[in-house]
Structures are given as C-alpha cells and as structure tokens.
Computed example of a mutant assay.
Amino acid sequence: MNHDFVGCVNYSDRTKNRYLALIRSILNIAAHEWQWLGNVPKITLYRKARRHVHRLMQNEAQKLIAALLGYLADMAIFKFGCRIQETKCAGFEVGANKPATKDSLDLS
C-alpha cells in the first residue's frame, strides 16, 4: 500500500507504524472474521530505525562504577571484564576494544 497519505504527516516512523498496524488489524478482522471484504490490501510498515549503541570509554566506565551501588558496581565490573552479550547482563560496553577490568579501573 502506498504511504503517501501517511508520509505527509510530521510524526515519527514509529508513530506511523502504530497507526498503520491498527488499520491493518481492522482490515484483517473485517475480511476474516466479519467477511465484509473479499481480500485485504497489503499494508507494509516503515522500517525500524537501528538503535545506536553508545560504547563507554574507560573514564566514563570509572565514573559509572563510582556512582553505582555495591552490587550494581560489581555487576558492571563483571560485564566490563568479560564482555558478555548485552542481554545477559546490564547492557554496558567499553569502547576501543579495551575491556575495563577491576584492575584497570581506579575505584579510589
């Protein structure tokens, strides 16, 4: 389906996708459950924007760990040291392929 009528509105693609998904849902119900329509037009959504991952530098990691409570600081140090996946821990990264370790961070 052509998005010309939606593209002229000054909203984010995420907001437009919500409305388009609602319209698509109503059309599917009208066609399949209520048998009002013989066929449903295909409505494609806007592409989702890729999220930017901000990688922390070592000085930023030190500030973060200093501001965290004890158990959260330990979790962040663990994350920095072993570089496990974002979803497996708290979601912190250290930039320049140089993992921050407990020894490399000045926690005094």
Rank of each mutant, 00 (worst) to 15 (best):
G91V: 10
C82W: 10
I84P: 01
D106A: 08
A90C: 11
S104C: 03
R50L: 15
N17G: 00
K88H: 10
M1Q: 05
G7Y: 11
G70T: 10
W36R: 12
L27A: 11
E86I: 04
P99S: 01
I84T: 05
L64P: 00
H52D: 07
E60A: 03
F92L: 15
H52E: 14
A21I: 03
W36D: 06
N2F: 08
A73Q: 00
L37W: 04
E33G: 04
L45I: 01
S108K: 14
A67F: 07
N59P: 08
I29K: 11
D106M: 02
R83Y: 01
L107W: 03
T15P: 04
Y71C: 07
Y19Q: 08
L37C: 09
L69A: 12
Q62H: 00
C89V: 07
D13W: 01
A49D: 13
H52P: 12
D13L: 13
I29C: 15
V53Q: 13
R24I: 01
K48G: 13
G7F: 06
L37P: 02
F78Q: 06
Q35I: 11
I29T: 05
L68V: 01
G81F: 00
V6S: 07
N10E: 04
I23T: 08
T87S: 05
V94H: 05
R55P: 14
L20N: 03
R51G: 05
R50F: 12
E86N: 08
Q35R: 15
R51C: 08
T15N: 06
C82I: 09
R24D: 04
R14L: 10
Y71D: 14
Y19C: 04
N2C: 10
L22S: 09
D103H: 11
H52A: 15
L27C: 08
K102S: 05
N17C: 02
Y19F: 08
M1H: 13
L107P: 03
T15C: 15
C8H: 06
S25D: 04
V6K: 02
A61M: 04
C89E: 06
H54G: 00
T101H: 01
A73I: 00
V40I: 07
N97F: 02
K79L: 12
A96K: 07
M75P: 00
N97W: 07
A31T: 11
A21D: 13
M75R: 09
R24N: 14
Y46V: 02
C8D: 10
P41F: 04
G38W: 08
H52T: 14
W36E: 07
A21G: 15
K88T: 03
E86R: 06
M57A: 05
Q62V: 13
Y19K: 11
A67T: 06
L72M: 15
S12Q: 15
Y19N: 06
V53Y: 15
A96L: 03
A21V: 13
G70I: 10
G81C: 02
N10W: 04
F92N: 01
R50M: 08
N10H: 10
L72G: 06
G7A: 11
L68D: 00
S104N: 09
Q58L: 14
I84G: 10
T87G: 09
Q62I: 06
R14G: 09
V94K: 00
T15D: 10
E33H: 06
D4H: 13
K48L: 02
E60V: 03
C89T: 13
S12V: 13
E93L: 11
Y19T: 07
L72W: 10
A66F: 06
